[in-house]
């Protein structure tokens, strides 16, 4: 274990542990947009910037991203200096200009006192801040159906050639983990549509209620060894089935 200081408080941590994790454990709030515990930190949004220094740096300090900066002995971390707050505010202004329609960004901007953004704003319909959570989740945890294509300002999240993906399993993890709700999907009855592909939700074998796409069940089956059909019972029916089983057990 090592000791470091966050906002004046001495705290303990493992050497190399990321500053964000330590701060959150200690109840120090650091804003993030591109951080998701399920995937490796990316350092793309720059909202989690903090100022670090060391006793032997002779007053010199630098801004680093808390999400991936490794803790070291005697590090002094300040999470709300003027420079930190100013940088976060500027980043929010850049994001507002990109996604004027995003509620989350607007709220965060207000928190940072950004009442009158001055930069030219883009289209209201744009919600994606390119935080890369969806693509990291899909690439690293699911089937890699989507990626960020193009470079620089042209960058966008999409399926290959913007066509219907044959590896997407319709699990909605991308849409659900998006901080700005930028990924659209639709679910009506036994149909779920995402990235231009409509999945049939398999009806519960007992009551007919929608369960999950067959593709997701197959993917799960491959990973867990359970039979595909075992996934096609809805939660309610499964619980009722469990209750019925209990009936026959002597307690």
């Amino acid at each position: 274990m090592i000791e470091l200081t966050i906002d004046g408080k001495r705290v303990q941590a493992r050497k190399g542990e990321h500053l964000l994790a330590i701060a959150r454990r200690e109840g120090v709030e650091i804003p993030t947009l591109c951080h998701h515990e399920a995937v490796e930190p990316s350092g793309a949004c720059r909202m989690c910037m903090v100022e670090v220094t060391r006793p032997d740096w002779e007053g010199w300090s630098k801004l680093v991203t808390a999400c991936n900066f490794p803790a070291e002995e005697d590090l002094i971390v300040r999470t709300r200096t003027d420079k930190v707050m100013q940088t976060r505010k500027e980043i929010l202004e850049l994001l507002i200009a990109r996604t004027p329609g995003s509620q989350l960004i607007a709220e965060m901007a207000r928190e940072y006192g950004l009442d009158h953004p001055t930069l030219t704003v883009g289209e209201l319909s744009e919600k994606c801040i390119l935080c890369d959570i969806c693509t990291r989740v899909c690439q690293n945890l699911v089937t890699g159906a989507i990626s960020r294509i193009n470079r620089g300002v042209e960058k966008e999240v999409n399926t290959p050639f913007a066509e219907v993906s044959d590896v997407c399993i319709g699990c909605l993890a991308c849409a659900k983990s998006c901080p700005t709700d930028a990924i659209e999907f639709k679910q009506v009855g036994l149909e779920r549509t995402i990235w231009g592909r409509t999945f049939d939700l398999v009806p519960c074998t007992q009551c007919g209620a929608p369960t999950l796409p067959k593709e997701q069940a197959e993917w799960l089956s491959e990973r867990t060894g359970m039979k595909v059909e075992e996934y096609f019972v809805c939660v309610k029916c499964k619980a009722a089935q469990t209750a019925r089983t209990y009936e026959n057990i002597a307690w």
Binding site: A44, R148, R151
Partner: peptide
């Protein structure tokens, strides 16, 4: 610009 981080891209 590679487009990864906000300050550079935007």
């Amino acid at each position: 610009s590679c487009g990864k981080c906000v300050p550079c891209r935007e």
